[in-house]
Nucleic acid binder design. Sequence first.
DNA 1: GCCGTTTTCGGCCCGACTGTTTTCAGTCG
Length: 575
Amino acid sequence: MNNEQVAEVLNDIAEILEIKGESKYRIRAYQQAARSIEFMPEDIEQVYHEGHLDDIPYIGKSIAAKVADVLEHGRSSYLEELEESIPPGIESLLQVPGIGPKTAVRLYQELGIDNIESLRIAAEEHRIQQLRGMGKKTEENILKGIKWLLGKSPRLPLGVAAILVERILEQLRRDPFVRNLVVVGSYRRMKPTVGDIDIMGTSDHPETVIDLFTALPDVDRIMAKGTTKATVLAENGLQIDLRIVPHESLGSLMQHFTGSKEHNVQLREYALSKGFSVSEYGITNIKTGWRIPCTTEEQVYSILELPYIPPEIRQGSGEIGAAVAGKLPMLVAQQDICGDLHTHSIWSDGRSSLEEMALAAEEKGYSYLAVTDHSPGLGIAHGLSVERLRLQWREIDDLNNRLEGITLLKGSEVDIRADGSLDLPDEILKELDIVLGAIHSGMRESSDLITERVIRAMRNPYLNILAHPTGRLIGSREPYDIDMEKVIKAATDLKVILEIDGTPDRLDLDGRHARRAKELNAKIAVSSDAHQVSGLNNMRFGVGTARRGWLEKRDVVNTWELKELQAFLNQHKGK
DNA sequence: GCCGTTTTCGGCCCGACTGTTTTCAGTCG
């Protein structure tokens, strides 16, 4: 069982405890434990086998026993026991906004409602407003909630939302009344998917800005509009909020709305222990009762005597402890990147020529760019035969002679075949500057098979980088059932670099695996996997993911100078 | 149920909104 699955069991337990009306602190304990496991870099099975379960934050004796049960038996007897103690289906009511555990239980007890459909019927028949403490409004809101639930759009990949968000920001920024415009929420934390977008800014004329916002061409529907805040829906269903806030508490508000919720809870708990109460309006000294509104986020953290914690690691997964101990990482940044190590061109399935790609990379300030078109086995992507590959080398040599500021590296994204062999002969691989290996077929193999297959490929002395290691496509394909703990260890031992692919629907490795890779001393390449010039911009999502994984400059090989990188790549050739 | 450089017991983030209430519980972010 992987971390997500164990976390899900704990969350399910918490949900049922809520319905049963248990102490909210007991419920929170399970939720916090679930969070810990979901976000910790280590593999939960591994930690269990080493006997360190209760070293995990928020896991004590009781929850450790339940986690052990889950890992031993693949299911939780405690959860099963709980499920039997409540009527089935009642949890489904919690999905309706406005309905929490208390209401759900009453609806069941007093009206026998245990699914969304019977809830809808009861509301339409006006049976809900007959209940004590519930009225006409409640009933209407339930119907509205059900409608919203059935029509709600799924979370969008970060990079897809980004195109829209940036267009909106650009238009708003043209307005002279707009100041300090910033996107907060999970978008700012670079979470791989976003549910809605929260934009915040200051202005001396808030109403003008709100008017401008709601009149933007990208706005499909105005959901709510006030004097300082508006909510709209874009055409693709994405909900966007804009709020204009007082300048003097911008920092406090940004901190609050950037989250994550868990980070804020932990920060506020920590603040309490230091005698401060933190809210979105400022920081209150509990003894004196004085509240200081913070203009900047830096101020929020510094009053608490903490270094600034970057948004990407505000996940409630150890960052506050690290900050207290002075052990926050110096996160890798976009400007540290010296080159891109995974790109395509019109030679295979890309849409820009080598020269266009090279010039665009130079424009971005890169000093090198690896050309890694597909290998012949990937017919659908016009994979390059050996003959065509050699022709491509000629063009690369020619460009390298002509272009001053950038060096093109001869590379290939080589298919990893079913048996773990690579789709180009070793003699050719040997001549390449850089070799990426990737799986593009047979993705549904069993965990053992696919893990062994990938590790076999990694043993090939010419393989430099394992590209998009888990193969997930956000929203459309689950990751392979691959044992990443083993793959990361193999990467360290065999000096194979693991990739963070910045394509918006990949972001693969994700932050958690990246953090584990760093812990185990594996090296990472952050790449765009661009198929045309504009795709080079996906690097920033890769960098964001690297930052979510606590990676520092030295962990990321494409922050190195070309000479150093080449030395690392070439050391393989003798192994 | 977890946690502790004030604590092994007594705490556990903060505030807004909503609806139905005469003072607040439930829900949400």
